[in-house]
Amino acid sequence: MTEPTASAPKSSIGRARFGGGTAALVIVSLAIGLGISSGLGALYAWLGETGEEWLRFAIVAFVTLPVSIMLPWALLVDRSSLKGAIDRPEDSVEARWYSKAAEGTMHDVLITVGIGAALFSFTQLQVNTGILLIVFGTLVMADFGVRYLLAKRADA
């Protein structure tokens, strides 16, 4: 990791950990993000129903672009060049809130999956797997968010 000098200014975007500046980090993140989004769009257009392939490609590429750009940025940014980034996040109270929320969410997932598996087995219920996973994933994220806020309220 590149250690910035004491006089090096910090910014909200930061600099690349591979030695480049902010511009290099932005360009590389955009390039990788565009590649990932284009790949996902092409995969969706190829695997989906026939017709309107370009439209489906464009929609998937567009909606996945923000995450596809932020992912390489998060992996490539030098944290010490970020404004407001603390040196030891693992020692901060926020790390405990995260751990408590993750632990509680894991238990909720285990219970939900267990009960759900039993119900589906007994009732022979058939549902769309994609929709089921989207709903379940949304509930898991909401569960984590609520648990994080509760942990924060308890410690703050």
Binding site: I86, R88, P89, D91, V93, A154, A156
Partner: peptide, 20 residues
């Protein structure tokens, strides 16, 4: 000075968070 968040200092001072 500690390299942690301000909220961490607040929680330690209130006795609600035992530091590492």
């Amino acid at each position: 000075e500690l390299g942690v968040s301000r909220q961490t200092v607040i929680s330690i001072e209130k006795g609600r968070f035992d530091p590492s």
